[in-house]
Nucleic acid binder design. Structure first.
Lengths: 182, 182
DNA sequence: AGCTTGCCTGACCGATCGGCCAGTTTTCAA
DNA sequence: TTGAAAACTGGCCGATCGGTCAGGCAAGCT
């Protein structure tokens, strides 16, 4: 059993994929394990065979985005403040656009996000990114950066009809206007 | 029975007040009728005696904010485009700050807000406001206005620690930067 | 063939949900 | 004081939730 069994990985992937779609469409709380199982073409017990519980499914859904954010934070840490800000503007938009589904999911669990240890690192990295985005110690700019992030995340929700490029362009303009980095 | 019975109105108000606090703190879905009843010092059956169901409680919670937004939309309709935009900027911020609790609640039910007829008018009025806020037919400015609203609403969430004036000032700066109406 | 191992499932559990109803307590006008 | 209307409640209902468990089933090793 050293090599991964194909069937195991295939089922796991299907569950995560369908869970992502359902979380995005109806929200985390409004999606039941039965919904996920039905969409994935297996039984609810199978979902719980592969994942220790509903929060574990959520963690698997968020994992790719969390990894990307963590990598971005790490990369920005080695740059000058100005360069880190520029990188944050460009990359944060990219991540939000590409992972817009995850953004949807995150907004749904915001009221109780503090009680979910499986997303703690992602939240912490997001806050770190907002620091880089501000590019200054000025509290006003820090707040404006958070304001911009809220707008950015909000814009990436329910934005299925927009193309990635259109969304990216819009967010870039908005972010640079708020941060006065045109 | 022509005049309102004092007891009726008093209990109703207490239920709505406690429901507001709970919806804001835990979210609409995570708050049960029993939670509301306990907080209001009555039984769950009493809540359902005064309101036809959980959605009706939500409608009552949102009602003051919905009325304010409707009034603002009506007022803006009689102004020139430029005046309407200026009014929208000022008043929308005021409303979001004053009713920030409602903003919290709304965000929680966003994934399923289309299926809630009791908040349809509020949503429609909000979209109308975003039009006034854009102040132009340019699709880019329209999108930026929506971006600004998302940022504004996001900023008003979980912002209990900030004073109203601080929040107002921050939102004013951010809005005018995005809309380039400094 | 027998047997282990990994994958999967139906049936079931306790808890909680929104909502309903019969009946009790309170209120208040006559 | 009295009686009907209004206000309120305990208890119950069906549905659904996340989660558990014993067992079925196919694949591969011996």
């Amino acid at each position: 059993m050293a090599a991964t069994t194909p069937a195991r990985e295939r089922t796991r992937r299907e569950i995560v994929h369908q869970a992502m779609d359902l979380f995005q469409a109806r929200g985390y709380n409004a999606t039941s394990l039965q919904d996920i199982a039905t969409a994935a073409g297996c039984s609810k017990a199978t979902v719980l065979y592969h994942f220790s519980g509903k929060p574990a499914v959520l963690a698997a859904v968020l994992e790719p985005a969390a990894a990307d954010v963590a990598a971005l934070v790490k990369a920005a840490a080695e740059l000058s403040r100005a360069d880190a800000q520029e990188l944050a503007i460009k990359s944060f938009i990219d991540l939000a656009v590409v992972h817009r589904g995850v953004v949807d999911v995150l907004q749904d669990i915001l009221p109780v996000i503090e009680q979910m240890p499986e997303v703690g690192q992602l939240v912490a990295d997001g806050l770190q990114l907002s620091d880089y985005l501000a590019g200054s110690d000025d509290p006003l700019e820090q707040d404006l950066a958070k304001f911009a992030i809220n707008g950015l995340l909000g814009e990436c929700r329910h934005a299925q009809e927009r193309t990635d490029d259109d969304l990216r362009r819009l967010c870039d303009i908005a972010l640079r206007r708020i941060l006065r980095r045109a």
